[in-house]
Amino acid sequence: MQVKTFDNTMELDLFAAQLFADTLKNKPNATLGLATGSTPVGIYGKIIEMYKNGAVTFKDATTFNLDEYVGLSPEHKQSYAHFMNEQLFNHIDLPKHHAHLPKGTVPDLKAECVEYDRMLSEQPIDIQLLGLGLNGHIGFNEPDQELQGGTHIVELEESTREANARFFDNLEDVPTKAITMGVGSILKADSILLVVKGADKAGIVKQALQGPITTEVPASLLQTHKNVLVLVDREAGRLL
């Protein structure tokens, strides 16, 4: 596991975006694992700039997102499908049918989990982008006595819902469940890029990277992966 610390988020975002561009230059039909939330917004902005400057193309790429809320349609403004369209997909040349997110509104959610894992097995992820939750979650894999390896339905912790409430009108509007790629699926990626920003994440960064490997801190399981690069700003990395 390698850790790189940046003095400002602009440098961090540009570095991360360049990693994705380099991946596509080396393998135009690469499979990219993508994340949502506030952490990757700047990265996606830099990727869009690179695309508009002709530095990268997504026409042969495939993407898989980590998760989606259960109960929110792709058209809902707080769905992750909508987020990805607004923050990235609408601005690049990725074919729409090459962009995959778990579907949180299908009648049979268990079947959707099985189907998502099937697609992942057929197109292994070359580089997986991750953020880090305050409780150590990656994707929506919340702390627990045991974790599921494959895509599954998860009950969101209150702390997670509170952290995401800023995107909704009020806490009651935040869904209580999500469909998420499992930790086992995440760890199958060829390379993993963990990006963490902000002073409030410093404690969990230290636990995840230097603490014991435990399902109570899901991100600590990244210590078992052979190819993880961690990008942090000064504040997030101040305890390392």
Rank of each mutant, 00 (worst) to 15 (best):
E68G: 07
Y69R: 00
G71T: 06
G71R: 06
G71H: 08
G71E: 05
G71P: 05
L72D: 02
L72N: 00
P74M: 09
H76S: 01
K77R: 15
K77W: 03
S79K: 13
Y80T: 05
H82S: 08
M84T: 08
N85F: 10
N85M: 09
Q87S: 01
L88F: 14
F89G: 00
N90S: 15
N90Q: 09
H91D: 00
H91F: 15
D93C: 14
L94H: 03
L94W: 09
K96C: 03
K96H: 09
H97R: 06
H97P: 07
A99D: 05
H100K: 11
L101V: 10
P102R: 00
K103E: 13
G104Q: 07
V106C: 15
V106M: 14
V106S: 12
V106N: 12
D108V: 15
K110T: 07
K110Q: 09
C113I: 12
V114N: 12
E115K: 15
E115D: 05
Y116G: 06
D117T: 11
R118P: 03
M119K: 15
M119T: 11
L120K: 11
E122N: 06
E122R: 14
Q123I: 14
I125D: 05
D126M: 14
L129H: 07
L129Q: 06
H137Q: 03
I138N: 03
N141E: 06
N141S: 09
E142Y: 00
P143I: 11
D144Y: 00
E146R: 11
E146V: 13
L147G: 05
Q148F: 13
Q148T: 10
G149H: 03
G149T: 01
G149R: 06
T151K: 04
I153Y: 05
I153Q: 06
V154S: 08
E155S: 14
E155R: 10
L156M: 13
